[in-house]
Each structure stands twice: as structure tokens, then as C-alpha cells.
Nucleic acid binder design. Structure first.
Lengths: 343, 343
DNA sequence: TTTAGCACTCTCGCCCCCTGAGTGCTAATT
DNA sequence: AATTAGCACTCAGGGGGCGAGAGTGCTAAA
């Protein structure tokens, strides 16, 4: 039995036991786990070495050992057995995604709910609607005769809104308005157009109201598309965890999670691995010291991009989390009807 | 000084002091509040009467008194001084609502966020999109030449979705498809139509895919429209409160709040008062014993209806909560461009 | 290099006591 | 009859002391 190897085994066992029970792990417990292949004294020696190397910590002198953040990092990088997403899991995820997506329309909301429900942990998502411009608008007269459905097309999305008017606008006028607006969109002269229109018709007139509504909708859509939307779902789940029994810690984490600005910093730091892991202090934020974030980017329709992930105590089950997220990523890809799955 | 009157004053003072400090209130504190208009002994006598009447409770013998649920009920019904929504507050709320609404599009999400942010408490919302049928669909060819924006009109809403196709569908074919589908919508024969179509063209064909996409979108929209969507925002805020320092209580409440089914029960119980209040055990749910719900219905555009409210400990500031919600209600009404505000 | 044995340390739960806040009752006062 | 002063009583909460149990590090033997 190679010494290095035994130490790695011991470290792995400590981490896995701690993930499972949230209790510090003692030498005797470990000896049991290894069915006394080596004695508790041997294990004590190794553990004391591992402590010096910075992988283990003692809450106090007689409490067994707890993995350090460095240990978790080593664990996810090297020690952990990597499961890979099972096809039936991907399939379940895909169905769920399809359902929820039509139920919510909001991609981020759907993503965070699914991942939270499936993993039983707190889920989060950030979706940045890439800063796209509106390319074209359409106006559709509604059956009530005095409302128009305004439809905007960007490169990859449709958005629509009802514009209600106090009076009737003739379809011909609406058609003209549409043509005029579409003409101005490309040249970025919408507000100019609105000013011009204001001079030729009264501001009270329905046609003007319609124009105003359309222009505002376009502006809002373009502005919105630059923003990032964050969701946190199932926040109560992390409260069940041992480490957040301490009310102060729980509160601080909840606060951090609802602080959208800070959270988005983490997500910006995404690297190129499919599933990214941030362990405790790797996020530069004291309130998140005891939590880890596991997340992945995903695409739907090849265009709308997002980040979805799981927040849990640092002693979370990283293997499971990675598995769920990989499944989600795959599932989202399969939703895309006009591209083949690559990976 | 009429005795009845004094007792009411004392009860009011107990409640308000408790709302403020979350500490049981003793006779001496009260004597101070009344600037020794009556002695602590007198107050003790009255308090003991009030206790017998069920309005006050003792956590233990030497801890001062705490209002009972009945006391809060009496307070909101009779004792409390009713503030009314200030116009500048309504105005601020309206602006906020306009912003957020365009930012989120999701009415419920916007409502819960606004009310949570403004009140500094946990906010929630439930929006039922009244079970409306799709009346008409439109298809708009996108610039990429092989995607169609599918737009659905119900009586009061527009919904849109991009349908991407692997191949090109000729605009004439799309126009025909649209006409056919619109013909079938009113007679509820969509699935029949799809079957029929399947017989005349291959299921692989783009036209069929398009038809399928449209029909699915219609079905989803109609199903969705019967559902209720719930949001809870700023859940961490209630954790700051004294009464939820107890982790078990906090967890239970959070659990209850994320249990969408149960929460919707409360909301169904809305009565006809503009702002409805449910105090602790008035909700038949042990996990919510220590919380009160203050909520109101609102309408935007005269059509989309919802419920929005505040959850807080039973000792919340009911006056403020009511004020915020009344403001919100007003603000939502003013958003509606084609109806005059009535109230 | 591994293991058995042992003394040592520290947390945690328990009990006890003390203090302070607030009460209820009684008797005196208005 | 209503109010008030005075006093004995109760009880939660904090602090200190104590013992049990868990786990360690060290030493010496295998």
C-alpha cells in the first residue's frame, strides 16, 4: 500500500463522510470505513500530515477533522469519481424544461425552478438576453377594433404587447405607421420620427398614441435586452442544511443571494469548462464563505444564453450537482429544433 | 376618564409598543408611555382584565404582556388610526410599476418585487390569467427566411413565440396554413386538422412542423391561461425579524411560502374589502401561525387580474402595509390607459 | 513503518444559584 | 367605588462548576 495513495484515500473518505453527515470525522470512524485495513493510529498520523498540508482542519482539539476548502477543490479536481449524465435523466430534464418553458415563458425562471426541484437544492439562474436590436415591427388589429397587437422581431426573438387605444385607428393608417416606423428603426431615428409626427397630428389623437406605444415598446425591448435577469429558487432548501442553522449565517447568505449585482459577478467569472465550480472563499465575498456554487452555461434555440446553477453548503454533493447540471445543459441543447446536438 | 376608553388606550399602546420593539410590554413601560396619567397598578388591573377578555397573553409570569391574535384583529378593525395612501406615494409606485413591468413583462413578478422593495418586507403575488381562449393566430416570416413568429390573440392578450424550421416554408403556404388554423380554432378542431394534414404531407416536411408548432403553442397558451402563478420575493427579509430567529420557525414559514398550492388557498379567500388581512391562525395552517398576510387584488389593463401582498410577523405594522398596498392598487389602475380611474 | 496504549484536552449537556423584571394581592388613599 | 402604594412571589436567563465522552498526540513496542 503506497503511502501517498493511502493518504488520498483517507482524504477522500473524510470528505465523503463529511458531505454525508456534516459531522467532523474521527480516526476511529475512518478505521471502520476502511474495515480496519489500517489502524486508527496510522490514520491519525496521516490525518495530522494532511492537516499540515492544509487539507484538513480541526474545529477543536477533540472533534475529529473537517475538510478545508482546498480539500474540496482537490476533491472535485482529482479525487471525485466522475459520474456522467444518464440519458434517461437528460430525457426527464428535457421534458420538464419543455413543460416549464411553455408555462413560464421566462427562460431563467424555468431553469432555476427545474434545477432546484430536481436537485432538491437551491437553484439560481442568470439570463442575459444578448444586446440585440429590434429589426422589424408588425401591427395586428384586434377583434375589439381599437387595440393593436404590436409584435417586434429581433434577430432571434419575438416580443409582443397589446396597445389599447381610446379610439379607433384605421387599418390603413396603422399600416402606414408600421411602414414609417420600420423605416426609422434601422436608422435609429425613432424619437425624431415621433417628434415629427407630433407636429402633424394632435398628441391626443389615437394614431399618435399608437405610435408612442410602439416606440416605447421598441425602446424598452432594446434596453431590456442588455440587462441580466437573475432568479433564485427554493431558497428555503439551503436553510435545512446544518451549516445554516446559525441564523446569522443563513440571513447573510440569503441577503447575498438576493443581491443581484454581487451574484452576477460570480457568473461573469465563468470559465470554459462545461460545469464550473466555485467553492466557498473562491468567491470573494464573506457572506458566501460557507456556500459553494456549481453552475453551467446553456443555450436554448441557439440564441438565448444563460447560466444556471445550484447553491449549497461547501460540503454539498458535487458529483450529483455536476450530473444534474450536465443533464440540464444537454436537455436545453436538445430543445433546439433546428440544430443537431454536437457534444 | 371612562374606563372602557382607558382599556382600549392601554391595549392600543401595548400593541403598538410590541409592534415596535417585539418585546413583551410591562405595566411600568406603559405608565411611562402615558406619562403617569395613571399608575402602573391601575394599568396592571386593566391588563389583567384585558387578559381575561383574551386580548393579552403572558409568555410567562414575569415577562410583561403580548397581544393575542384577537388583539391584532381588534386593532386593525377598530383601534388603528387609518392612514390613507398619499398621492406622491401612489405616483412613485406607478412609476416603479411602469419600469418593472417593461423590465419583466411578467406582471406577478413585477408586483411582488415592487411591493417587497417599497415596504422592506417579504412580498408575494398571485396572478391568474383568466381562462381565455385563443381567438386568432398570425404568422410573420422572419428575416432569416425560415423562421416564423407565431402571434396569438386572446380577448385581452397577445402572446408570441418564434418557431424555427429546418427548411423554408413558402409565404403562400404559411398564409394558407394560418387561414386553415384560424378556421379550426373557433370550432375546436385543431388536433383533427393536424391529423388531416399529416395524411396529405409528410411529417418531416417543414410545413407540418410549422403547423405542429403553432397548434402546440395554442394548446399551451390555453392550458396555461387557467393556471395561477405565484411569486415570493425578498424572503430573506422576514428572516431578519425577531420571531423568526428560531430556525425551525423560519424554515417552516419559508417552506409554506414556497408551497404554491397552499398559499393560493389564502388568496382564494379574498373578501370584498380593498385590502384584506389574514392574521396568524386565521390562516388554517400551523406553519404560518406567526405570520400575517396583508394583500389586495389589483387589475392592470382592466383585464389581467392579480393579488399582491406582504407577509410579515403578526406584529407587523399593519397601517404601513395597508398604505403600501392601497397605493399599489391605485397605481396599477392608473396604468390602464383606456379607462378612467374610478375610486 | 505500523500499531497499541495512555495521558491529555476540549466540548457539551447538566444542574444550581442568583438576579431582575414583572406580576397579583392587600391595604391605604382619594 | 376607583385608584394607588407596597410587598411578597414567580420565573426566565445568565454564569459557573462538574462529569462524561470523543478524539487527539506522543511514546514505546512490534
Amino acid at each position: 500500500m503506497d503511502l501517498r495513495d493511502r493518504r488520498r484515500k483517507i482524504l477522500k473518505a473524510v470528505i465523503e463522510s463529511y458531505i454525508d453527515t456534516a459531522e467532523p470525522v474521527g480516526s476511529k470512524t475512518l478505521a471502520d470505513i476502511f474495515e480496519n485495513a489500517f489502524s486508527s493510529a496510522t490514520i491519525r498520523n496521516d490525518m495530522s500530515e494532511l492537516e499540515e498540508m492544509g487539507y484538513l482542519e480541526k474545529p477543536h482539539v477533540s472533534a475529529g477533522r473537517v475538510p478545508s476548502y482546498a480539500a474540496y477543490r482537490l476533491y472535485v479536481n482529482e479525487l471525485m469519481e466522475k459520474r456522467h449524465a444518464l440519458s434517461f435523466e437528460i430525457e426527464a430534464m428535457r421534458r420538464e424544461l419543455e413543460n416549464k418553458l411553455s408555462e413560464f415563458e421566462d427562460l431563467g425562471l424555468a431553469a432555476s425552478r427545474i434545477i432546484s426541484a430536481m436537485s432538491g437544492q437551491t437553484g439560481f439562474s442568470a439570463v442575459k438576453t444578448a444586446g440585440e436590436r429590434v429589426k422589424r415591427c408588425e401591427l395586428i388589429l384586434c377583434d375589439d377594433g381599437h387595440s393593436y397587437a404590436c409584435v417586434l422581431l429581433t434577430g432571434s426573438e419575438v416580443k409582443s404587447r397589446m396597445i389599447r387605444l381610446p379610439f379607433i385607428v384605421a387599418p390603413e393608417d396603422a399600416a402606414m405607421l408600421k411602414a414609417a416606423i420600420n423605416g426609422c428603426i434601422s436608422e435609429n431615428k425613432l424619437s425624431l420620427f415621433l417628434n415629427m409626427l407630433a407636429r402633424s397630428v394632435s398628441a391626443e389623437e389615437a394614431l399618435f398614441k399608437l405610435a408612442e406605444g410602439v416606440v416605447r415598446f421598441i425602446e424598452e425591448t432594446e434596453n431590456e435586452s442588455e440587462s441580466v435577469k437573475l432568479h433564485v429558487e427554493g431558497a428555503e432548501k439551503i436553510l435545512n442544511m446544518r451549516e445554516f442553522q446559525d441564523t446569522r449565517k443563513a440571513r447573510e447568505l440569503m441577503e447575498y443571494l438576493s443581491d443581484k449585482k454581487v451574484l452576477s459577478d460570480i457568473l461573469d467569472s465563468e470559465d470554459d469548462t462545461p460545469v464550473c465550480i466555485k467553492i466557498g472563499p473562491e468567491i470573494d465575498e464573506p457572506r458566501a464563505r460557507d456556500a459553494s456554487f456549481v453552475f453551467t452555461t446553456f443555450t436554448v434555440d441557439g440564441a438565448r444564453r444563460g447560466v444556471v446553477g445550484i447553491v449549497a453548503p461547501t460540503r454539498m454533493d458535487y458529483g450529483k450537482a455536476i450530473e444534474y447540471l450536465a443533464s440540464f445543459r444537454q436537455a436545453a441543447k436538445q430543445l433546439n429544433p433546428h440544430k443537431k446536438t454536437e457534444e
